[in-house]
Design a protein around this nucleic acid. Sequence first.
DNA 1: ATTAGCACTCACCTCTGATGAGTGCTAATA
DNA 2: TATTAGCACTCATCAGAGGTGAGTGCTAAT
Lengths: 348, 348
Amino acid sequence: MADSLNERSQNILEAIVEDYISSAEPVGSRAISRKHNLNLSPASVRNVMADLEEMGLLCSPHTSAGRIPTEKGFQYYIDTLLEVRDLNSNEKQNLRNSYRFQNMRMEDIMQEVGRVLSSLSQYTGLVMAPKFISTVFRQIEFIRLSRGRLLMIYVSETGLVQNKVIEADSSLTTSDLEYISNYLSSELNGLSIQEVRTKLSRELQEDRIHYDKLKKQALNLSCAALQDEIEDQIYVSGASLILGQPEFSTPEQMKRLVQAFESKKLLIELLDRGHSARGVQIFIGSESNQVDLEGCSLITSNFSNQKGAIGTLGVIGPIRMNYSQVVPIVDFTAQLVSRVLDREIGQD
Amino acid sequence: MADSLNERSQNILEAIVEDYISSAEPVGSRAISRKHNLNLSPASVRNVMADLEEMGLLCSPHTSAGRIPTEKGFQYYIDTLLEVRDLNSNEKQNLRNSYRFQNMRMEDIMQEVGRVLSSLSQYTGLVMAPKFISTVFRQIEFIRLSRGRLLMIYVSETGLVQNKVIEADSSLTTSDLEYISNYLSSELNGLSIQEVRTKLSRELQEDRIHYDKLKKQALNLSCAALQDEIEDQIYVSGASLILGQPEFSTPEQMKRLVQAFESKKLLIELLDRGHSARGVQIFIGSESNQVDLEGCSLITSNFSNQKGAIGTLGVIGPIRMNYSQVVPIVDFTAQLVSRVLDREIGQD
DNA sequence: ATTAGCACTCACCTCTGATGAGTGCTAATA
DNA sequence: TATTAGCACTCATCAGAGGTGAGTGCTAAT
């Protein structure tokens, strides 16, 4: 149905959306007929606007105000009218230069990505570090904390460090732990977590392993350590930028957003949505299904190195976001980060 | 000078401060003369109020409003009038029960502390994890990331894991690194970072070490890894709570605060102020010297285990904070966390 | 020394009318 | 038949006016 719009309607809708994106104010027929050289009188524009309103693509706050695009209007704009141009090589170079990735830990890289995303887009940057489950095993260490409690340190191929406290048999000596660490690290090196898990459970079932008590304990320990998920890490940058947007200028709106940004769980859930997709994804307004994020749109893209290690980055802003500007930034940044992660383990 | 206040003046100042703390509104003479049974008419109260205003302890937003305490007024209240009662054993038990510390990584503990602090105080909780410099060496690992780049993982006595990427001689093999890790871990175990540093620089100067090339490399590596500070970790919880306070209800104020909370550097600087002191410290308003935190007060206390590992926790709220309620919470929480950190490495 | 009394101040609320941007409808026009 | 000029109408926004009430400072009485 929405596709049945004729060209004039499309032009006018596009004009309204773009005017609204830059002004955040209801757009009147007069403004459209003048600024965009459509050679149409305000009256004609009004007629089309009335049609668009009937279709649910526009609405007006009150009788004597202009029109603003509805969520559905934005949806249509994004699906049909938005042309995302690629960055030219100059812009790409600028973007590359914005990032400082030298000698950074994974955490620092993620933080840096958030920082740049938010400062370039002037909205809020979100980054979710590669998920534990998507990483490739590199090394594992066990350190005794107190009787019966061990600290497990896991390092992935890309240098992502995650740790976890596990309960364990208190009879293990320090050298036992060292042996176990070495044994597991060499056994599991290069396997994906998925493969690690199947390997572990298979070996645990095999009988012969039972002859070597230490090896069995190694398997038990690593099961305890690696079987469960490890909480995703998420980075929010430039939260104050989105608060500067007029649609969130009331104290209530601000509190709501800050609350949402504080809830890592909510954000993880949000970013997980696009986690299997390739390329840039756009979630408009109520698609997020989060009351606290009402009025927000999210532009995300996944990044990953060649061995897996999938994370997600993106920008969250008002529905009235400058999609044509932000989408290429998110897109290219994801590519950039993917390449950086490869370099992390590469030989250059 | 401030101490020259007579008892009546003190009583009235106290009454005004406490009324203002609970109402956030200017306090009138009538309210004081009635609610607090001072047996004084409003007119008498007004006389005293005028004196207090002249001393700079009170001010009035305009002629026909009541009085509100100035920063100096709050300072006086805190220094002279505030009586901080200890929690009774019931309250202590409740507080203990609020915290869930089982099998938690240091990060989780810090986060949990922030969560509980903010939810109990209804202001914003701040926690700074034990500073790297104050920790006791437990173990160090080096993992090759790519040619010339190593990931260093440092684990402190309390299980604080910190990592860092360093550039290094690319000729080191995996087993070299393993040897180096083991050598350093056994050499440095139990030393404070301060001691580690002096030991390292002393050994590097000694000649005999130069015969063992690998040991020399070990020392070089650990110098590169441990000589610089590692960035402090800071946790902010319940930022939205402070935004609910009437003094920060305008959009500008909110944006300002959110910005301040986003700047880890600023917060670290703030918490560092009280870092050498013992017991609870209170920083009122402009004492923070941070324009972005204008109108805020900070209540902090350090925590530490018996071996060092000093961190700081606290609550940030409006100057009009409920000090008598929050101070004991911060105080007892710091004691609690200190004990938990000891248990981390203890034998129970 | 304390307090009752009183004039005074001023934020806050509500009501009012003016303004103007923008609309919908209708009739004239190309 | 599609477009547009014209016009009455709507309604948010703003400024000014008047009323209200909480609270003050001062003075004179207790």
